[in-house]
């Protein structure tokens, strides 16, 4: 009916449409976020908003200072990263370099299953099992602390770190390993000195995406971080990360009020944090790109 060329063009345009849909949706979400978040500038200055130390959104007069929330997010994420990266990278090295193929066949799906567990389940586990344990271990007044949240987030972020690092390690050509082994090195030496450096850009990307996974997690931190809006001095204090604050208050905030705009403004802050993380990931994966055939 149509000529081959017309059909070709039609199909090309169709795919272009599909591809641009996701970008358009992303832009619309960003535009909505800014439209709802920016009006808070009329009430508090951006500096007072970002560095204010008290968050009392429902009082008269309200106080919208999100420094405790930002530091809460950062502390919890830092802890999660400290757990997820060593755990994740070591597991990935084991899976790709050491494990017997049969062991790998069991372990890899198990790790991926871990990524599929709903976050509310992790939250419940943290609330009922981990929090009382932390409370007894450190003899704290409460077990709902930044550390509890970090442990849960570390477990949740590790599948991301593991799968991406493992992909990076397996895409290192066999010839690298063979060359190294042929020079008489041990398998350990080969893994640490040859394979891991060759896959470094992929591993860094994995770590940063794991970090993004931790900072954006909402339900679990709402349940186990305690929810106290103070700037934490130690890991053993309750904190109130930005995501938990948004979800806890959005349902009750009066639509169109200053509080409502302030919550969206926190969303804008989170948006920039995630954007920064992604840019850094992108930069690292280009900067340390292996120029041989071992590129991920």
């Amino acid at each position: 009916m149509f000529s081959r060329k017309t059909r070709e063009i039609c199909i090309e345009k169709l795919f272009l449409l599909f591809a641009s849909t996701s970008i358009v949706i992303l832009l619309l979400i960003a535009a909505f976020l800014f439209k709802e978040g920016l009006p808070i500038i009329e009430v508090v200055s951006p500096l007072r908003f970002l560095f204010g130390k008290s968050w009392y959104p429902t009082y008269e007069p309200p106080e919208f200072g999100i420094l405790p929330l930002i530091t809460g997010s950062l502390v919890v994420t830092l802890g999660a990263v400290l757990i997820a990266i060593p755990l994740g990278v070591a597991t990935a090295i084991y899976l790709s370099e050491v494990a017997h193929p049969r062991v790998r066949e069991v372990l890899k799906p198990a790790v991926e299953l871990l990524a599929g567990v709903p976050s509310v389940v992790y939250g419940f586990f943290g609330l009922v099992i981990v929090a009382p344990w932390i409370q007894d271990l450190f003899e704290l007044p409460t077990g709902l602390t930044a550390l509890t949240a970090s442990i849960m987030l570390g477990i949740m972020a590790s599948p991301t770190v593991i799968s991406i690092s493992e992909d990076a390690l397996s895409s290192v050509p066999l010839s690298y390993r063979e060359a190294s082994l042929a020079l008489g090195t041990t398998r350990w030496h080969t893994a640490i000195r040859v394979t891991v450096p060759a896959a470094l850009s992929g591993i860094c990307t994995a770590c940063i995406l794991g970090m993004a996974r931790a900072i954006e997690e909402t339900m679990t931190v709402l349940m186990v971080a305690g929810g106290a809006a103070v700037i934490p001095r130690t890991f053993l204090q309750p904190v109130r990360p930005m995501t938990a604050n948004i979800i806890a208050e959005m349902g009750e905030a009066v639509h169109g009020s200053d509080h409502y705009h302030a919550l969206f403004a926190i969303g804008v802050v989170l948006f920039f944090v995630t954007l920064a993380i992604n840019l850094v990931a992108d930069f690292i994966s280009h900067r340390f790109k292996e120029t041989g055939s071992g590129t991920l």
């Binding site: 009392y56 009082y59 008269e60 929810g227 106290a228 809006a229 806890a248």
Partner: peptide
Amino acid sequence: KKAKVTPRALLQAANAT
């Protein structure tokens, strides 16, 4: 009487939790 709750308070989203 509208005094501020200490910021150290743990805030819970629901009665049951």
